[in-house]
């Protein structure tokens, strides 16, 4: 179902960002002047619109029935 796939795509960046925090809590390597922890956060925030944009293409604008509704 396209809505399910859209959901899976949309949650990737924020999920990876947050789940990764315990493992990236270090200053090195420094990239583009940013310590690694900050780079991790900023990078995922910056690409989130790409994932949400893909979800938009998959799921449409939401003027269709809700994910629960269209299972009827």
């Amino acid at each position: 179902m396209r809505t399910r796939l859209a959901f899976a795509v949309a949650v990737i960046p924020v999920l990876v960002l947050i789940a990764g925090l315990p493992f990236v809590n270090r200053p090195d390597p420094v990239v583009l002047g940013l310590p690694f922890l900050l780079l991790w956060i900023v990078g995922w925030v910056a690409v989130t619109p790409l994932f949400l944009g893909a979800a938009y293409l998959l799921a449409g604008g939401g003027d269709e029935p809700s994910p629960e509704g269209d299972r009827r």
Binding site: P13, V14, I18, I41, V42, W44, V45, T48, L52
Partner: peptide
């Protein structure tokens, strides 16, 4: 920097 991203998603 992060919580809004979760909120928008």
């Amino acid at each position: 920097l992060v919580y809004g991203t979760l909120g928008y998603t």
